[in-house]
Design a protein around this nucleic acid. Structure first.
Lengths: 193, 193
DNA sequence: TATATTCATTAACAAATGTTAAGAAATATT
DNA sequence: AATATTTCTTAACATTTGTTAATGAATATA
Protein backbone atom coordinates (compact mmCIF):
# COMPACT_ATOMS: atom_id res chain seq x y z
CA UNK A 1 0.00 0.00 0.00
CA UNK A 2 1.37 3.36 -0.95
CA UNK A 3 -0.29 5.44 1.69
CA UNK A 4 -1.51 4.12 5.02
CA UNK A 5 -2.87 7.49 6.02
CA UNK A 6 -5.27 7.77 3.12
CA UNK A 7 -6.36 4.14 3.57
CA UNK A 8 -7.18 4.93 7.19
CA UNK A 9 -9.00 8.08 6.30
CA UNK A 10 -11.19 6.06 3.92
CA UNK A 11 -11.83 2.99 6.00
CA UNK A 12 -11.76 4.31 9.54
CA UNK A 13 -14.00 7.29 8.78
CA UNK A 14 -11.59 9.66 10.43
CA UNK A 15 -10.43 13.17 9.60
CA UNK A 16 -7.23 13.54 7.59
CA UNK A 17 -5.54 14.91 10.66
CA UNK A 18 -6.40 11.95 12.90
CA UNK A 19 -5.61 9.55 10.07
CA UNK A 20 -2.18 11.05 9.69
CA UNK A 21 -1.48 10.75 13.39
CA UNK A 22 -2.73 7.18 13.55
CA UNK A 23 -0.81 6.14 10.47
CA UNK A 24 2.41 7.05 12.21
CA UNK A 25 2.03 4.27 14.78
CA UNK A 26 1.00 1.70 12.19
CA UNK A 27 2.93 -0.73 10.09
CA UNK A 28 1.73 -3.02 7.38
CA UNK A 29 2.51 -6.69 7.59
CA UNK A 30 1.74 -9.77 5.50
CA UNK A 31 1.14 -13.34 6.62
CA UNK A 32 0.78 -16.45 4.53
CA UNK A 33 -2.30 -18.59 4.63
CA UNK A 34 -2.23 -20.78 7.72
CA UNK A 35 0.07 -18.61 9.81
CA UNK A 36 -0.82 -18.29 13.47
CA UNK A 37 0.30 -14.73 13.90
CA UNK A 38 -0.87 -14.70 17.54
CA UNK A 39 -0.53 -17.80 19.69
CA UNK A 40 -2.34 -18.71 22.88
CA UNK A 41 -0.36 -18.04 26.08
CA UNK A 42 2.25 -15.96 24.27
CA UNK A 43 2.73 -12.32 25.09
CA UNK A 44 0.83 -9.99 22.78
CA UNK A 45 0.49 -6.24 22.99
CA UNK A 46 -0.60 -5.53 19.44
CA UNK A 47 -3.72 -4.38 17.67
CA UNK A 48 -4.59 -5.51 14.14
CA UNK A 49 -6.72 -4.29 11.27
CA UNK A 50 -7.41 -6.39 8.20
CA UNK A 51 -6.57 -4.76 4.89
CA UNK A 52 -6.80 -7.88 2.76
CA UNK A 53 -7.65 -11.51 3.41
CA UNK A 54 -9.49 -13.38 6.14
CA UNK A 55 -8.51 -14.38 9.68
CA UNK A 56 -10.05 -16.24 12.55
CA UNK A 57 -9.63 -16.63 16.28
CA UNK A 58 -9.70 -20.14 17.67
CA UNK A 59 -8.64 -22.35 20.56
CA UNK A 60 -8.23 -26.07 21.23
CA UNK A 61 -10.89 -27.80 23.28
CA UNK A 62 -10.23 -30.62 25.77
CA UNK A 63 -10.01 -33.16 22.97
CA UNK A 64 -7.59 -31.09 20.93
CA UNK A 65 -10.22 -30.05 18.40
CA UNK A 66 -10.02 -26.52 17.02
CA UNK A 67 -12.98 -24.32 17.92
CA UNK A 68 -13.39 -21.13 15.90
CA UNK A 69 -14.65 -18.17 17.91
CA UNK A 70 -14.67 -15.34 15.34
CA UNK A 71 -13.96 -14.52 11.73
CA UNK A 72 -12.32 -11.29 10.62
CA UNK A 73 -12.85 -9.82 7.18
CA UNK A 74 -11.26 -7.02 5.12
CA UNK A 75 -11.48 -3.41 6.19
CA UNK A 76 -12.46 -4.37 9.68
CA UNK A 77 -10.61 -4.57 13.00
CA UNK A 78 -9.49 -7.79 14.60
CA UNK A 79 -10.77 -8.11 18.19
CA UNK A 80 -9.19 -5.39 20.30
CA UNK A 81 -6.27 -6.57 22.40
CA UNK A 82 -8.14 -6.06 25.67
CA UNK A 83 -10.83 -8.56 24.66
CA UNK A 84 -8.44 -11.39 23.88
CA UNK A 85 -5.57 -11.12 26.36
CA UNK A 86 -5.03 -11.61 30.05
CA UNK A 87 -2.08 -9.82 31.62
CA UNK A 88 -0.72 -9.20 28.12
CA UNK A 89 -0.89 -12.88 27.22
CA UNK A 90 -3.17 -14.13 24.51
CA UNK A 91 -6.07 -16.34 25.53
CA UNK A 92 -6.57 -17.60 21.97
CA UNK A 93 -4.92 -18.07 18.60
CA UNK A 94 -5.23 -15.68 15.66
CA UNK A 95 -4.71 -17.29 12.29
CA UNK A 96 -4.56 -16.13 8.69
CA UNK A 97 -7.12 -18.26 6.82
CA UNK A 98 -5.97 -16.82 3.50
CA UNK A 99 -2.89 -14.79 2.67
CA UNK A 100 -3.47 -11.53 4.51
CA UNK A 101 -2.21 -8.00 4.78
CA UNK A 102 -2.74 -6.33 8.13
CA UNK A 103 -2.23 -3.01 9.74
CA UNK A 104 -0.42 -3.63 13.00
CA UNK A 105 0.25 -1.27 15.89
CA UNK A 106 1.08 -1.33 19.57
CA UNK A 107 -1.86 -1.18 21.92
CA UNK A 108 0.16 1.16 24.11
CA UNK A 109 0.72 3.63 21.27
CA UNK A 110 -3.00 3.72 20.59
CA UNK A 111 -3.77 4.32 24.26
CA UNK A 112 -1.40 7.25 24.28
CA UNK A 113 -2.97 8.78 21.19
CA UNK A 114 -6.43 8.30 22.69
CA UNK A 115 -5.50 10.44 25.66
CA UNK A 116 -4.54 13.38 23.50
CA UNK A 117 -6.91 13.09 20.55
CA UNK A 118 -10.61 13.02 21.25
CA UNK A 119 -11.51 11.81 17.75
CA UNK A 120 -9.17 8.85 18.06
CA UNK A 121 -10.51 8.07 21.53
CA UNK A 122 -14.07 8.05 20.19
CA UNK A 123 -13.02 5.86 17.28
CA UNK A 124 -11.17 3.35 19.45
CA UNK A 125 -14.05 3.13 21.89
CA UNK A 126 -16.43 2.54 19.01
CA UNK A 127 -14.26 -0.32 17.79
CA UNK A 128 -14.31 -1.85 21.26
CA UNK A 129 -18.03 -1.36 21.59
CA UNK A 130 -18.60 -2.93 18.17
CA UNK A 131 -16.65 -5.99 19.24
CA UNK A 132 -18.58 -6.33 22.49
CA UNK A 133 -21.87 -5.90 20.71
CA UNK A 134 -20.95 -8.65 18.32
CA UNK A 135 -20.12 -10.93 21.21
CA UNK A 136 -23.49 -10.33 22.83
CA UNK A 137 -25.23 -10.75 19.47
CA UNK A 138 -23.53 -14.10 18.93
CA UNK A 139 -24.41 -15.24 22.42
CA UNK A 140 -28.01 -14.28 21.80
CA UNK A 141 -28.07 -16.17 18.50
CA UNK A 142 -26.47 -19.22 20.04
CA UNK A 143 -29.12 -19.27 22.76
CA UNK A 144 -32.22 -18.54 20.74
CA UNK A 145 -31.70 -20.17 17.36
CA UNK A 146 -31.19 -23.73 16.18
CA UNK A 147 -28.26 -24.70 13.99
CA UNK A 148 -30.12 -24.14 10.71
CA UNK A 149 -31.10 -20.62 11.69
CA UNK A 150 -27.57 -19.94 12.86
CA UNK A 151 -26.18 -20.99 9.50
CA UNK A 152 -28.62 -18.71 7.69
CA UNK A 153 -27.56 -15.90 9.98
CA UNK A 154 -23.89 -16.71 9.36
CA UNK A 155 -24.47 -16.44 5.63
CA UNK A 156 -26.01 -13.02 6.09
CA UNK A 157 -23.06 -11.82 8.11
CA UNK A 158 -20.27 -13.43 6.08
CA UNK A 159 -21.76 -13.79 2.65
CA UNK A 160 -18.79 -15.07 0.70
CA UNK A 161 -17.02 -17.01 3.43
CA UNK A 162 -18.75 -20.37 3.08
CA UNK A 163 -17.19 -21.10 -0.30
CA UNK A 164 -13.81 -19.77 0.69
CA UNK A 165 -12.77 -21.48 3.91
CA UNK A 166 -12.81 -25.02 5.33
CA UNK A 167 -16.25 -25.99 6.58
CA UNK A 168 -14.77 -27.28 9.80
CA UNK A 169 -14.05 -23.66 10.75
CA UNK A 170 -17.67 -22.78 10.17
CA UNK A 171 -19.16 -25.79 11.93
CA UNK A 172 -17.12 -25.21 15.07
CA UNK A 173 -18.06 -21.53 14.94
CA UNK A 174 -21.72 -22.53 14.83
CA UNK A 175 -21.22 -25.07 17.59
CA UNK A 176 -22.08 -28.12 15.51
CA UNK A 177 -20.20 -30.98 13.80
CA UNK A 178 -19.02 -31.02 10.19
CA UNK A 179 -21.55 -33.71 9.44
CA UNK A 180 -24.37 -31.68 10.88
CA UNK A 181 -23.31 -28.65 8.86
CA UNK A 182 -23.30 -30.69 5.69
CA UNK A 183 -26.78 -31.98 6.46
CA UNK A 184 -28.13 -28.51 7.11
CA UNK A 185 -26.54 -27.17 3.94
CA UNK A 186 -28.33 -29.83 1.98
CA UNK A 187 -31.62 -29.19 3.71
CA UNK A 188 -31.50 -25.47 3.02
CA UNK A 189 -30.53 -26.11 -0.60
CA UNK A 190 -33.49 -28.46 -0.99
CA UNK A 191 -35.85 -25.63 -0.06
CA UNK A 192 -34.70 -23.66 -3.09
CA UNK A 193 -35.03 -26.44 -5.65
CA UNK B 1 -23.60 0.30 55.07
CA UNK B 2 -21.77 2.68 57.37
CA UNK B 3 -18.71 3.22 55.31
CA UNK B 4 -18.51 2.75 51.54
CA UNK B 5 -14.82 3.58 51.50
CA UNK B 6 -13.81 0.76 53.82
CA UNK B 7 -16.07 -1.67 51.96
CA UNK B 8 -14.33 -0.71 48.74
CA UNK B 9 -10.92 -1.01 50.27
CA UNK B 10 -11.79 -4.55 51.37
CA UNK B 11 -13.55 -5.82 48.29
CA UNK B 12 -11.86 -3.92 45.47
CA UNK B 13 -8.36 -4.60 46.76
CA UNK B 14 -7.43 -0.94 46.50
CA UNK B 15 -5.37 1.37 48.67
CA UNK B 16 -7.21 3.45 51.25
CA UNK B 17 -6.46 6.53 49.21
CA UNK B 18 -7.98 5.19 45.99
CA UNK B 19 -10.90 3.73 47.93
CA UNK B 20 -11.63 7.10 49.46
CA UNK B 21 -11.59 8.78 46.07
CA UNK B 22 -13.79 6.14 44.48
CA UNK B 23 -16.26 6.15 47.34
CA UNK B 24 -16.96 9.78 46.67
CA UNK B 25 -18.56 9.06 43.30
CA UNK B 26 -20.55 6.10 44.62
CA UNK B 27 -23.96 5.78 46.12
CA UNK B 28 -25.65 2.80 47.60
CA UNK B 29 -29.05 1.77 46.33
CA UNK B 30 -31.51 -1.04 47.07
CA UNK B 31 -33.89 -2.82 44.72
CA UNK B 32 -36.60 -5.29 45.55
CA UNK B 33 -36.63 -8.79 44.13
CA UNK B 34 -37.90 -8.72 40.57
CA UNK B 35 -37.02 -5.11 39.80
CA UNK B 36 -35.59 -4.44 36.36
CA UNK B 37 -33.23 -1.69 37.37
CA UNK B 38 -31.90 -1.37 33.82
CA UNK B 39 -34.23 -1.83 30.87
CA UNK B 40 -33.39 -2.63 27.26
CA UNK B 41 -33.35 0.38 24.92
CA UNK B 42 -33.44 2.87 27.79
CA UNK B 43 -30.59 5.27 28.35
CA UNK B 44 -28.06 4.04 30.88
CA UNK B 45 -24.78 5.61 31.90
CA UNK B 46 -24.24 3.86 35.18
CA UNK B 47 -21.92 1.26 36.62
CA UNK B 48 -22.99 -1.19 39.33
CA UNK B 49 -21.35 -3.32 41.96
CA UNK B 50 -23.24 -5.94 43.96
CA UNK B 51 -22.96 -5.60 47.73
CA UNK B 52 -25.77 -7.99 48.60
CA UNK B 53 -28.13 -10.20 46.61
CA UNK B 54 -28.15 -11.63 43.11
CA UNK B 55 -28.86 -10.11 39.71
CA UNK B 56 -29.00 -11.27 36.14
CA UNK B 57 -28.89 -9.83 32.65
CA UNK B 58 -31.45 -11.08 30.16
CA UNK B 59 -33.30 -10.28 26.96
CA UNK B 60 -36.42 -11.48 25.18
CA UNK B 61 -35.99 -13.75 22.19
CA UNK B 62 -38.18 -13.71 19.08
CA UNK B 63 -40.88 -15.70 20.84
CA UNK B 64 -40.91 -13.44 23.88
CA UNK B 65 -39.08 -15.94 26.06
CA UNK B 66 -36.57 -14.58 28.56
CA UNK B 67 -32.98 -15.63 27.91
CA UNK B 68 -30.53 -15.14 30.76
CA UNK B 69 -27.06 -14.08 29.67
CA UNK B 70 -25.22 -13.63 32.98
CA UNK B 71 -25.59 -13.91 36.71
CA UNK B 72 -24.07 -11.42 39.14
CA UNK B 73 -23.20 -12.32 42.71
CA UNK B 74 -22.18 -10.40 45.85
CA UNK B 75 -18.91 -8.51 46.04
CA UNK B 76 -18.54 -8.56 42.30
CA UNK B 77 -19.12 -6.04 39.53
CA UNK B 78 -22.07 -6.09 37.19
CA UNK B 79 -20.97 -6.05 33.53
CA UNK B 80 -19.25 -2.76 32.79
CA UNK B 81 -21.44 -0.22 31.02
CA UNK B 82 -19.40 -0.37 27.82
CA UNK B 83 -20.11 -4.10 27.40
CA UNK B 84 -23.89 -3.76 27.61
CA UNK B 85 -24.79 -0.45 25.98
CA UNK B 86 -24.82 1.01 22.51
CA UNK B 87 -24.70 4.79 22.23
CA UNK B 88 -25.60 4.98 25.92
CA UNK B 89 -28.65 2.80 25.49
CA UNK B 90 -28.90 -0.58 27.14
CA UNK B 91 -28.93 -3.62 24.88
CA UNK B 92 -30.32 -5.85 27.65
CA UNK B 93 -32.22 -5.90 30.93
CA UNK B 94 -30.64 -6.03 34.37
CA UNK B 95 -32.84 -7.51 37.04
CA UNK B 96 -32.65 -8.07 40.79
CA UNK B 97 -33.31 -11.78 41.31
CA UNK B 98 -33.37 -11.31 45.06
CA UNK B 99 -33.57 -8.14 47.10
CA UNK B 100 -30.27 -6.44 46.39
CA UNK B 101 -28.03 -3.65 47.57
CA UNK B 102 -25.77 -2.15 44.94
CA UNK B 103 -23.05 0.40 44.68
CA UNK B 104 -23.96 2.70 41.82
CA UNK B 105 -21.89 5.35 40.07
CA UNK B 106 -21.74 7.25 36.81
CA UNK B 107 -19.55 5.74 34.13
CA UNK B 108 -18.36 9.24 33.30
CA UNK B 109 -17.19 9.88 36.85
CA UNK B 110 -15.18 6.68 36.78
CA UNK B 111 -13.61 7.60 33.44
CA UNK B 112 -12.52 10.93 34.87
CA UNK B 113 -10.97 9.30 37.94
CA UNK B 114 -9.19 6.79 35.72
CA UNK B 115 -7.42 9.57 33.89
CA UNK B 116 -5.95 10.99 37.06
CA UNK B 117 -5.41 7.93 39.21
CA UNK B 118 -3.30 5.14 37.83
CA UNK B 119 -4.42 2.63 40.48
CA UNK B 120 -8.07 3.25 39.65
CA UNK B 121 -7.34 2.97 35.95
CA UNK B 122 -5.65 -0.38 36.48
CA UNK B 123 -8.52 -1.57 38.63
CA UNK B 124 -11.19 -0.51 36.14
CA UNK B 125 -9.34 -2.12 33.27
CA UNK B 126 -9.03 -5.32 35.27
CA UNK B 127 -12.78 -5.32 35.86
CA UNK B 128 -13.37 -4.90 32.12
CA UNK B 129 -10.85 -7.57 31.29
CA UNK B 130 -12.45 -9.95 33.79
CA UNK B 131 -15.82 -9.46 32.15
CA UNK B 132 -14.43 -10.09 28.68
CA UNK B 133 -12.58 -13.14 29.86
CA UNK B 134 -15.77 -14.52 31.30
CA UNK B 135 -17.55 -13.96 28.01
CA UNK B 136 -14.88 -15.85 26.10
CA UNK B 137 -14.91 -18.60 28.73
CA UNK B 138 -18.67 -18.98 28.41
CA UNK B 139 -18.45 -19.06 24.63
CA UNK B 140 -15.80 -21.74 24.87
CA UNK B 141 -17.93 -23.80 27.24
CA UNK B 142 -21.01 -23.40 25.09
CA UNK B 143 -19.08 -24.64 22.06
CA UNK B 144 -17.13 -27.50 23.57
CA UNK B 145 -19.38 -29.03 26.24
CA UNK B 146 -22.77 -30.69 26.20
CA UNK B 147 -25.57 -29.54 28.47
CA UNK B 148 -24.69 -31.91 31.30
CA UNK B 149 -21.12 -30.71 31.41
CA UNK B 150 -22.28 -27.11 31.24
CA UNK B 151 -24.53 -27.63 34.27
CA UNK B 152 -21.66 -29.16 36.22
CA UNK B 153 -19.53 -26.17 35.26
CA UNK B 154 -22.33 -23.81 36.27
CA UNK B 155 -22.48 -25.43 39.69
CA UNK B 156 -18.75 -24.89 40.14
CA UNK B 157 -19.05 -21.24 39.26
CA UNK B 158 -22.27 -20.43 41.10
CA UNK B 159 -22.37 -23.01 43.86
CA UNK B 160 -25.42 -21.85 45.78
CA UNK B 161 -27.47 -20.40 42.96
CA UNK B 162 -29.30 -23.52 41.81
CA UNK B 163 -31.39 -23.75 44.97
CA UNK B 164 -31.98 -20.03 45.15
CA UNK B 165 -33.37 -18.91 41.82
CA UNK B 166 -35.97 -20.13 39.29
CA UNK B 167 -34.62 -22.95 37.17
CA UNK B 168 -35.89 -21.26 34.03
CA UNK B 169 -33.17 -18.65 34.53
CA UNK B 170 -30.55 -21.37 34.66
CA UNK B 171 -31.86 -23.39 31.74
CA UNK B 172 -31.95 -20.38 29.43
CA UNK B 173 -28.46 -19.44 30.61
CA UNK B 174 -27.27 -22.93 29.69
CA UNK B 175 -29.11 -22.77 26.37
CA UNK B 176 -31.50 -25.64 27.10
CA UNK B 177 -35.16 -26.06 28.09
CA UNK B 178 -36.50 -26.37 31.64
CA UNK B 179 -37.42 -29.96 30.91
CA UNK B 180 -33.95 -30.79 29.74
CA UNK B 181 -32.45 -29.16 32.82
CA UNK B 182 -34.68 -31.23 35.05
CA UNK B 183 -33.67 -34.39 33.23
CA UNK B 184 -29.98 -33.61 33.53
CA UNK B 185 -30.34 -32.77 37.21
CA UNK B 186 -31.86 -36.16 37.78
CA UNK B 187 -29.21 -37.94 35.75
CA UNK B 188 -26.38 -36.30 37.67
CA UNK B 189 -28.10 -37.07 40.98
CA UNK B 190 -28.45 -40.72 39.97
CA UNK B 191 -24.67 -40.97 39.62
CA UNK B 192 -24.25 -40.14 43.30
CA UNK B 193 -26.81 -42.62 44.65
C1' DT C 1 -56.03 -23.31 56.71
C1' DA C 2 -57.81 -23.80 52.21
C1' DT C 3 -57.29 -22.62 47.58
C1' DA C 4 -55.06 -20.94 43.68
C1' DT C 5 -50.96 -20.32 41.23
C1' DT C 6 -46.51 -21.04 39.86
C1' DC C 7 -42.67 -24.06 39.34
C1' DA C 8 -40.32 -28.58 38.85
C1' DT C 9 -40.57 -33.29 37.51
C1' DT C 10 -41.80 -37.07 34.71
C1' DA C 11 -43.37 -39.56 30.62
C1' DA C 12 -44.11 -40.38 25.73
C1' DC C 13 -42.90 -39.13 21.59
C1' DA C 14 -40.67 -36.07 17.90
C1' DA C 15 -36.90 -33.63 16.12
C1' DA C 16 -32.23 -32.28 16.08
C1' DT C 17 -27.63 -33.32 16.50
C1' DG C 18 -23.66 -36.52 17.33
C1' DT C 19 -20.83 -40.73 15.97
C1' DT C 20 -18.78 -43.75 12.94
C1' DA C 21 -17.67 -45.26 8.67
C1' DA C 22 -17.81 -45.40 3.73
C1' DG C 23 -17.69 -43.16 -0.56
C1' DA C 24 -17.45 -38.93 -3.61
C1' DA C 25 -15.41 -34.58 -4.71
C1' DA C 26 -11.92 -31.35 -4.52
C1' DT C 27 -7.20 -30.22 -3.94
C1' DA C 28 -2.37 -31.04 -3.58
C1' DT C 29 1.69 -33.70 -4.86
C1' DT C 30 4.51 -36.41 -7.62
C1' DA D 1 -1.81 -36.94 -16.06
C1' DA D 2 -1.77 -40.06 -12.30
C1' DT D 3 -1.77 -40.63 -7.52
C1' DA D 4 -2.21 -39.33 -2.88
C1' DT D 5 -4.35 -36.49 0.47
C1' DT D 6 -7.68 -33.76 2.34
C1' DT D 7 -12.33 -32.22 2.58
C1' DC D 8 -17.18 -32.80 1.99
C1' DT D 9 -21.20 -35.64 1.68
C1' DT D 10 -24.11 -39.38 2.72
C1' DA D 11 -26.02 -43.22 5.34
C1' DA D 12 -27.17 -45.87 9.45
C1' DC D 13 -27.69 -45.67 13.90
C1' DA D 14 -27.14 -43.69 18.77
C1' DT D 15 -27.74 -40.00 21.82
C1' DT D 16 -29.21 -35.66 23.16
C1' DT D 17 -32.45 -32.24 23.35
C1' DG D 18 -37.10 -30.34 22.30
C1' DT D 19 -42.33 -30.55 22.69
C1' DT D 20 -46.47 -31.37 24.85
C1' DA D 21 -49.08 -32.71 28.43
C1' DA D 22 -49.99 -34.64 32.94
C1' DT D 23 -48.72 -34.83 37.74
C1' DG D 24 -46.63 -33.51 41.94
C1' DA D 25 -44.30 -30.01 44.86
C1' DA D 26 -43.65 -25.56 46.43
C1' DT D 27 -45.19 -21.01 47.05
C1' DA D 28 -48.40 -17.31 47.16
C1' DT D 29 -53.04 -15.56 48.08
C1' DA D 30 -57.47 -15.41 49.86
Amino acid sequence: MKDISSYISNKFFLSHCSSKILSEIMDIVSFEKGTNFVEKDRENKMEYWIVEGICRSYFLDNFGAEITLSFFTPNKPVSPNVTRTNANHSILNLQAITNVRLLIFRNEDLMNLMKEHKEIEVWANAVLQGELQQKVAKEINQNSMNAKERLIDFRDQYSSLENLIPHSYISSYLGITNVSLSRIRKEIARNYE
